[in-house]
Design a protein around this nucleic acid. Structure first.
Length: 574
DNA sequence: GCCGTTTTCGGCCCGACTGTTTTCAGTCG
């Protein structure tokens, strides 16, 4: 029995309880039990007494054990008899929650979207107490809008909107300070909307200017504390602005950064100490005094907690954990994956080097595509040797940066590599990656990756799964096996910083770090602008609790050189 | 349904907003 199936079962029960309009705490008890299992690193077999886990009590323990034994439970079967399955998707309709749906089912026999629309058309919903004309209008509008855009948007698709808004917000004089919050600040891979927190003493003035921003397409709400607009963008992204007095800025920022689970844990912690947290400050329950803060560090410290970076505010677990120093953008000494006009880049070798110097990088690797990738004007042995000569000259010329002569070599569909072992040692840094035949089965893909990882001249595997967030899943990889192989053969695992990729994903990086892997955060830049993706990559690494020492491009140049030589050296000893 | 340094009952995070009411329940973040 797979732990994931048990978790899913508990969550399904929670959804049905919600539809039944059950007590909210009972519902969250099932969710909490599922979450407890999820967070526990052990497999089902390794957990001796499920009931001893905090959050799993007599009831949920019995359900879990019944499910393990029978593959189903009386609890869920009973619920499925009482609640029609067609109601489940309706929970996603804005304005409809469990309580209302339960009433619609029991009083009007609404079972799915069709019967919901029929009941609305007949005027039955409007006649129900607690519902009214507006409720019906809202429900129908939400139903119509559902499916016209994805539930959540890939991070990369909202970054341009964020950047455009920052430029405009900077111009509004009545704004004291502002910051992005929400899942964007936590660097979730997909986001629902953008949340900005704005500190101001003139909320009406600011609100007026916000609705007039050039990219605003529609105004959904405009009050003195909250302005919601829809902006021009691919999907009609909605943006929330929260307007607060400067004193409350930090606690509001914390509140709307979330996550929800993080906030719940923080409030529980505060409560233990006799405090109450809200977006307006930390209130001493006894005296009623409200404390506000100048920065988030003092906010956390006030409750006896070290600063928790926004990227790791997810499960709530972080509140009680000791948090190591996480990699930061200031630790980054170089970038080991970028392209030039020699293959499919937009900037020349000289241009990329000089831009990297302006970042203060100690080192970079020039890694153009290899000959197999003809669409990208991939380089053969001869052109790589020519490019290497130029790189050698550059290294002569500058003493503030070291340029590794590298390549991003294709792993071919049959599992062989694009260059032979007698050529590869000529290069300082060899990346191997897959750009073809994504539809092969997992076994074949793993053979390809394994060949590359084991090759003594391959230093790193780039974008290990080939995914494009929100667009394609990539090829099938047994990621745990991939990580183990990489650790065994001292092959670097890339975190590709391109916000479309973020590959390997942060959740797997966490596993990789635990097992002793070395990680590189690289931009895979094809032009100047993409070199800036490094900060997104670093944030993704932080989200996976990655420490600076795990990341090779935080190391001093000499350490990097030693690591690269060591891999080759091991091969000659064999 | 779960839990207990206020321990077997009575809480469970907090506040805004909406639409419905006439004091509040439901939903949302």
């Amino acid at each position: 029995m797979d732990k994931k199936q048990v978790i899913k079962h508990l969550e399904t029960i929670a959804v049905y309880l919600e539809l039944k309009g059950e007590n909210a705490f009972k519902i969250s008890a099932y969710r909490k039990a599922a979450q407890t299992l999820e967070r526990d690193e052990r497999s089902l077999d390794e957990i001796e007494d499920i009931g001893s886990l905090s959050g799993v009590g007599k009831g949920t323990k019995a359900v879990i054990e019944e499910y393990i034994t029978n593959g189903e439970t009386e609890t869920l079967m009973q619920l499925q008899k009482e609640v029609p399955e067609g109601l489940i998707p309706l929970l996603n309709v804005q304005g409809l929650g469990g309580k209302k749906l339960s009433r619609l089912y029991h009083e009007l026999n609404v079972q799915d979207e069709t019967t919901l629309r029929e009941a609305a058309d007949r005027g039955d919903i409007e006649a129900l107490s607690g519902f009214g004309k507006k409720s019906v209008e809202k429900i129908l509008k939400a139903l119509d809008e559902q499916g016209t855009r994805p539930e959540r948007l890939p991070l990369s698709s909202v970054i341009p909107t964020y950047e455009a808004l920052v430029i405009e917000l900077d111009q509004i004089a009545s704004i004291e300070r502002y910051a992005i919050a929400g899942s964007f600040r936590r660097l979730r891979e997909d986001v629902k909307d953008l949340d900005f927190i704005i500190a101001t003493n003139q909320p009406e003035n600011v609100a007026e200017q916000l609705v007039q921003l050039s990219i605003v397409k529609a105004v959904e709400a405009k009050g003195s504390t909250k302005v919601t607009v829809v902006v021009e963008s691919e999907w009609g992204l909605s943006v929330d602005f929260r307007l607060v007095e400067p004193e409350a800025f930090i606690t509001t920022l914390h509140h709307f950064t979330g996550s929800k689970d993080h906030n719940v844990e923080m409030r529980r912690l505060a409560k233990e100490q006799g405090y109450k947290i809200s977006e307006y400050g930390i209130e001493n329950v006894e005296t009623g005094d409200v404390k506000t803060f100048d920065d988030e560090t003092s906010f956390f410290n006030y409750l006896g907690v070290d600063y928790i970076p926004p990227e790791i505010r997810e499960t709530g677990e972080e509140v009680d954990s000791s948090i190591p120093a996480l990699v930061s953008i200031n630790d980054i000494q170089g970038d080991l994956h970028m392209h030039t006009t020699w293959s499919d880049g937009a900037q020349s070798l000289d241009e990329m080097v000089n831009r990297a110097r302006s970042y203060g990088y100690q080192f970079i690797a020039i890694t153009d595509h290899s000959k197999y990738l003809q669409v990208a004007n991939g380089l053969n042995e001869k052109r790589l040797r020519q490019q290497r000569q130029l790189i050698d000259e550059i290294n002569q010329k500058y003493d503030d940066i070291h340029v590794f002569a590298g390549v991003e070599m294709d792993i071919l569909p049959d599992g062989t590599l694009d260059f032979d072992d007698d050529f590869l040692p000529e290069l300082d840094f060899v990346i191997a990656s897959i750009h073809s035949n994504f539809n092969q089965d997992e076994e074949t893909i793993m053979k390809r990756l394994e060949q590359a990882i084991k090759n003594p001249y391959v230093h790193m595997i780039a974008h290990p799964t080939g995914r494009l967030i929100g667009r394609r899943n990539g090829y099938p990889v047994n990621i745990e096996r991939f990580i183990d192989l990489a650790v065994e053969h001292n092959t670097i695992i890339e975190l590709n910083a391109n916000p479309n990729r973020l590959d390997l994903a942060w959740s797997y990086l966490q596993i990789a770090q635990d097992r002793g892997a070395t990680i590189a955060i690289n931009t895979d830049a094809h032009n100047y602008r993409m070199l800036d993706d490094m900060s997104t990559g670093v944030q993704a690494a932080r989200k996976g609790w990655i420490k600076p020492e795990t990341v090779i491009n935080t190391w001093p140049l000499e350490h990097v050189q030693r690591f690269l030589m060591k891999k080759k050296g091991e091969s000659s000893e064999q």
